[in-house]
Amino acid sequence: MFTGLISVPCLLGLVRIYLKYGGLISVIFHNFSNKFELEILSSQLKIDVSLRNKINSGQPVVAIETAILTHGMPIEPGNQFVKLAFNACKQHGVSPAFLSVVNGALRIGASEKELSALVNNPDSKKISRRNMGIALAMKWSGGTTVSAGIFMANQAGISVFCTGGIGGVHREFSKNFDISQDLFALSKTPVIVVSSGAKAVLDLTKTFEALEFFGIPVVGYRTDEFPSFWSRNSGLSLEVTANSPEEIISIWKHHLSSGVGSALVVANPVPEKNQIPYPEIDGLIKSACVEADTLGISGPDLTPFLLKFLNDRTEGRCLETNISLAVSNVVLGAAVSSLI
């Protein structure tokens, strides 16, 4: 069949080329497809005009995720967090860029009124890097997770991103293979991510190991222990501690110059007065996981269920701590951003 179109020696030659250079060709094609994907998605960014001018002129801007609002807090506490975040940024002379998806557009920057509308929308989706394209096609509105948020921040030219806690490896991983896309996104997106460690509902030990596996450096801010969201402790020791925003910037500049290409996670413990001791919260988390398993709750619905369960069992303490740590991360993120 092929001999009428191409000679046998020529065909054999092409086979030899593929066998010798096929791996390189695959890498080139993979990199090209990734670049094409990034260009398509970045062309969908809708950056607030004022923020665009500030980014272009080198003025400090800090990115903030919104899944914490749409899927991590009730409406009124969410609105409270927004006000506190705007005030914290104002005090540092930094502009906040809340990241969201509105009617299929990737939005960089939103007013308090716009964020309130997003939070009050019962159809708001939880949007990660995985379903960003679907969100654009289906004209969804929703809050962005870490994986989507750091992509948007990086494409907009914003170097500092704030969240409550990163995602990671879930408990019972060997049975459900549940692992957050945050880890993959962090491994390939060069931004500073300020968080209170990883969410305590995860398997923290496996998450910590996964961060190392994916080549994602973690720097403790005034701590030598990896924080566990509601708690300042986890029993997991950190390699490096930064005691000031200036030290974070120094590490960040050297991280960039190394060409590694991953994010730099800055682990900022929740303020001590607001923390819930790890042994206390860990026991409740185990009960919550059993309840979720009994009800068949998994996937994207699992974390919101666990957060609500824990907040109910702690009579609102978890939510108060969540707001405290989220605001604390914005304060630190703003301080770091002001130095870039």
Rank of each mutant, 00 (worst) to 15 (best):
V191N: 10
K273L: 13
L5T: 13
F81L: 15
D224N: 14
V336R: 04
M1C: 00
D178F: 05
L136Q: 10
I192L: 07
P217R: 00
G215M: 01
V193G: 05
Y18C: 06
L41I: 13
D48M: 10
F36V: 09
S50Q: 15
L136P: 02
S174W: 04
I340A: 10
V94Y: 05
N274Y: 07
S7I: 03
G93W: 13
R107L: 01
P300N: 11
V290P: 08
S258G: 04
I55E: 08
S262I: 01
R222A: 14
V82Y: 10
L19W: 03
V194S: 12
Y221E: 07
L332K: 03
H71C: 09
V330G: 06
L256Q: 10
K113W: 00
K126T: 02
E315W: 02
L332P: 11
E291T: 12
G142W: 03
G220S: 11
N34Y: 09
T207D: 03
V15Y: 04
N329C: 01
S262N: 12
E280K: 15
N121E: 08
I158A: 12
H255A: 13
G261Y: 04
A210Y: 12
L106M: 15
M132G: 07
N120A: 06
G143Q: 07
S26A: 13
R313I: 04
N311K: 04
F151V: 00
A105S: 12
G93D: 01
E212N: 11
D312S: 14
F86C: 06
S124H: 11
K46I: 14
P277W: 11
N268A: 13
N329D: 13
S42Y: 03
I340N: 14
I6K: 05
N243Y: 14
I281A: 08
V94S: 01
S196R: 01
S244W: 15
S95Q: 14
G316K: 06
K188F: 00
I276E: 09
K113R: 03
V331A: 04
P300Q: 06
N53C: 00
G259D: 01
T303R: 07
G215N: 09
T223L: 06
F214D: 01
S7F: 09
V240F: 02
F214S: 04
V169G: 10
S42F: 09
P269K: 02
G58R: 15
A334S: 15
T144H: 00
S42T: 12
T314E: 07
K253D: 11
Q44M: 06
I179D: 02
A200L: 01
Y18S: 00
L264V: 05
G78D: 06
A117I: 06
D301I: 11
K90Y: 02
N311F: 04
A292E: 13
S174K: 03
G167N: 13
I166S: 05
V290M: 11
G296A: 11
